[in-house]
């Protein structure tokens, strides 16, 4: 059984030491084709062996669409993704990645930026800085708060030279006040922060008088994809295979079924082609397709778009 291709196939082309327990992975297309585009500050999911999915910010200039560069700090006490990347992934290995998501809004009427990063949290601002410099909007300062030698020194050198980077070494001096770094709200200034939760808390406090549209916060664990506020999680019960599958709010039934290896012949993924039809036995489906008649809906649903109005929906699978 072949399941649909759901990730962008990349291979590890180079691994560099980023210092401070960090490895920098350069991912490329196997034929060196250009990769899907990304916005400054965007991130991608890496689909690792064993089904682990981990999200990392892209560190390279978005204009450089031949590669995705991610910096990974080895967290021995983490959930295992960084350790696996450090210890088991080599040059030449294949890694499936998601399409890039997120990124900073850098509207034209914002002419100056201040970014505050804690340690490895500097990564999203590397692509932002490269982009701002390239498009001729060089008025920004990146404050990097780190203990001892800063991470990713080799990637920071150009920013240090151009005077865009201020390193605050908390081993040598007191931790700076974030309020002092961001200053008071000004209409042409945009802010960004990425770092540990405690730093983000301080940053939120320091920017509470700023308009939300001017403040970007990037968390290490990115918030889930925006979902329909009315969407709710539910359980799919498969009557014949006796499986119970949780469906997260906003997730499609189709992806939940594919996720446990059940192949459904989907095609349009938008409720018009009729290929992903499944019969349902109990529950209250919300249909949303444009192919089934009311009579057919009494018995079938299209798993690419249907949802459940109740906590449990029983499918004839």
């Amino acid at each position: 059984m072949t399941l649909p291709i759901t990730t962008v196939k990349t291979i590890v082309d180079r691994i560099e030491d980023g210092g401070a327990g960090i490895k920098v992975f350069r991912l490329v297309d196997p034929d060196r084709w250009q990769l899907p585009p990304f916005r400054p500050g965007a991130h991608i999911d890496l689909h690792l062996p064993g089904g682990m999915v981990r999200t990392y910010s892209l560190c390279n200039d978005p204009a450089d669409n031949a590669r995705y560069v991610v910096a990974v700090k080895r967290e021995a006490a983490g959930r295992g993704g960084s350790v696996l990347l450090h210890d088991a992934i080599d040059v030449g290995d294949t890694i499936g990645v998601s399409l890039p998501r997120g990124g900073l809004d850098l509207p034209d009427d914002v002419t100056r930026f201040a970014f505050v990063a804690g340690g490895i949290g500097v990564t999203p601002f590397l692509s932002v800085a490269a982009w701002l410099k390239r498009v001729g909007r060089p008025k920004f300062t990146l404050h990097l708060i780190a203990r001892g030698a800063p991470p990713l020194a080799h990637l920071l050198v150009p920013l240090l030279r151009s005077g865009h980077l201020v390193v605050h070494d908390t081993a040598a001096a007191a931790r700076p006040h974030i309020a002092a770094l961001v200053g008071r709200p000004l209409s042409d200034v945009g802010l960004g922060c990425c770092g540990p939760e405690s730093m983000i808390g301080d940053f939120e406090q320091a920017t509470r008088d700023w308009p939300a549209s001017r403040v970007h916060i990037e968390r290490f664990v990115p918030p889930p994809l925006p979902v329909d506020p009315d969407a709710r999680p539910y359980t799919l019960a498969l009557a014949r295979s006796k499986l119970e599958i949780p469906v997260a709010a906003g997730q499609t039934m189709l992806s939940a079924l594919l996720g446990v290896g059940i192949d459904i012949p989907a095609s349009c993924c938008g409720g018009i082609c009729g290929s992903c039809k499944v019969d349902w036995l109990e529950g209250a489906p919300i249909h949303r397709d444009r192919v089934l008649s009311p009579t057919e809906r009494a018995r079938s649903l299209m798993v690419c778009v249907a949802e459940s109005a109740e906590d449990r929906l029983v499918l004839d699978l």
Binding site: I5, T7, V8, K9, D29, P30, D31, W33, Q34, L35, P36, P37, N65, L99
Partner: peptide, 10 residues
């Protein structure tokens, strides 16, 4: 053309 799913068309 493009050699793989999701990649930009050239």
């Amino acid at each position: 053309i493009t050699p793989r799913a999701f990649l930009p068309m050239r």
